[in-house]
Design a binder for these strands. Structure first.
Length: 521
DNA sequence: AAGCCTAGCGCC
DNA sequence: AGGGCGCTAGGCTT
């Protein structure tokens, strides 16, 4: 079922696939479709799937402040129960659920007894029955708020200068070639590589052929990975590595990408809340969460606007400090740079060691420099390191682990012999997943503050345009940059309270207001 | 031709 | 090195 939403002078018109039409006022629309919580002043829309319904509403100029997304909460609850959902939320939804938005509008009196009402009641009961109902309710609300923000960000789009993008491509690759042709700079590098390697023409784009050619030239390589090639001492390697970097730019974010994904000065990726098992978002279309630094100078605010770019500093180690209640690590994080604080504590000698060691602790490093540093960190921060160790042991025993707000890791696969891998996964899950919760709370807090400060069209006000795990970008009119910066700081402080219910760990965010994304850091 | 897999690399 | 992703190209199978 697809519903077309149109805003008209007399109200909001909804038309379904069969041409059946309903007309409601904006106020009635909200009241009819939303299930109003008894104690809440603001209506909360309860619907099957934000990603399915909200885009049409946004296109019609309707903004929704709060919702409960049945699909996403179903995912949370099924994850906790260790089960697979019996609902069909995908492309072929169960008719009774898929049609409910329209049913609510068409029959606003019949609130009780409708399927959406039933599923919602079941979900509320399941949350209430959970050992930590308050945390889980927060998670459900945050997940749902994220879904609203995701749809709004796609609607608004990332402001993108196609001219600047084209210019940087031309600078790096040479003029745009005819379709299917290799850009001049790539052509030159490939020729240079062939000449220096001296074994004839090499199919440089084919890893197996490339390995064979390198070995023919007497180089001991087992792959074409850049990190392995970089260790090889041969004059042909430098142009090869340069070729690989530029070829990557060309194929992943070149002219073809630009034509495919940027329209009318906006890049509109689909954000997928909860798309990753840990609760992180995924994306689809244009590789939004892998936007290379190389092209970020093409992300440019509109005339008279700014990009307010905010980044949570050392989010994951701070999350670990709060999760574990490690007072020494909380102390190390009192300043703007937690890694510098670890150095000041005397645990390690350099910031690089602090960073490497903490990443190793959270990812489960077993070898190399990172693993060597671990014992020293464990002496200085036994609670933090003990916390991830316990999560790892649980995973190795085949158990599941939880984030702070209750998102639960999946049951491990049956394969024998992968205990160590399971331990690394659960070790990281608790930190990455709780960091995702903090970021979601931050995002929702920023969104609420922007909402409360604005009326009217979404894109005429300061609005979120981009979110990558621990970083937010708001597109804001020049005159409102100050309040947006404040909102980003305030929401970060709130997020710590929302997720941890109070912690001595601080979560500083760096904020930069810039014309181009690339100028943010 | 379409779908799946792997290698490799971009991001956090 | 070690966690989580998406995407592209090449190369395979169907």
């Amino acid at each position: 079922m697809h519903i077309v939403v149109e805003r008209r002078p007399e109200g909001i018109a909804l038309t379904d696939d069969s041409g059946h039409q309903t007309l409601v006022s904006e106020g009635d629309f909200s009241r009819a479709v939303a299930v109003r919580e008894a104690a809440a002043e603001r209506p909360r829309w309860v619907w099957t799937d934000t990603a399915k319904w909200y885009p049409a509403l946004l296109a019609a100029g309707v903004r929704i402040q709060r919702c409960h997304d049945l699909r996403l909460v179903d995912g949370l609850l099924c994850g906790i129960a260790g089960q697979v959902s019996h609902h069909e939320w995908g492309s072929a939804p169960r008719p009774a659920l898929a049609d409910t938005l329209f049913d609510f509008v068409a029959a606003p009196d019949a609130v009780t007894g409708l399927v959406v009402g039933e599923v919602w009641a079941q979900q509320r009961a399941a949350i209430a029955a959970h050992p930590a109902p308050l945390q889980l309710a927060v998670l459900a609300a945050a997940e749902s708020a994220g879904a609203l923000a995701a749809a709004e960000m796609q609607y608004a789009g990332v402001p993108w200068s196609a001219d600047a993008h084209d210019a940087l491509l031309t600078e790096a690759l040479g003029p745009r070639p005819a379709s299917g042709q290799r850009p001049a700079h790539l052509e030159a590098l490939a020729a240079q590589f062939d000449a220096l390697l001296g074994v004839g023409r090499v199919q440089i784009d084919s890893p197996p052929e490339l390995v064979k050619a390198l070995r023919r030239a007497g180089l001991e390589v087992s792959s074409t990975r850049s990190s392995e090639l970089a260790r090889v001492d041969h004059p042909a390697i430098e142009p090869l590595l340069r070729y690989k970097t530029l070829s990557r730019l060309h194929s992943s974010n070149g002219w073809h990408w630009l034509e495919e994904w940027v329209r009318h000065g906006r890049f509109r990726p689909t954000f997928i809340p909860g798309g990753v098992v840990t609760g992180r978002w995924a994306s689809a279309g244009g590789g939004a969460l892998q936007l290379p630094r190389q092209v970020r100078s093409a992300v440019q605010a509109d005339e008279g606007w700014r990009l307010v770019v905010a980044d949570a500093a050392q989010l994951e180690p701070r999350i670990l400090a709060a999760l574990s209640g490690d007072a020494a690590m909380a102390q190390a994080g009192r300043g703007a740079d937690l890694y510098a604080g670890i150095v000041s504590s005397g645990a390690v000698a350099t910031r690089e060691q602090a960073k490497l060691g903490m990443l190793g602790a959270m990812y489960g490093a077993t070898r190399g420099v990172s693993a060597q540093i671990l014992p020293r960190l464990a002496r200085s921060f036994p609670d933090a390191l003990g916390f991830v160790e316990r999560a790892a042991r649980a995973g190795e025993r085949g158990e599941r682990v939880q984030t702070r707000l209750g998102r639960t890791s999946p049951w491990p696969t049956e394969r024998v012999g992968d205990e160590a891998a399971r331990g690394r996964f659960t070790r990281n899950f608790v930190v990455q997943g709780t960091a995702a919760e903090w970021a979601l709370a931050w995002l929702a807090g920023v969104r609420n503050r922007l909402w409360n400060a604005s009326a009217g069209s979404l894109t005429e006000q300061p609005h979120l345009v981009f979110f990558v795990h621990d970083e937010l970008v708001v597109h804001a009119p020049l005159g409102r940059v100050g309040e947006v910066e404040q909102a980003l700081h305030d929401a970060a402080a709130d997020a710590a309270r929302v997720v941890f219910g109070g912690t001595s760990v601080t979560f500083p965010v760096t904020v930069a207001s810039v014309q181009r994304y690339s100028d943010a850091k």
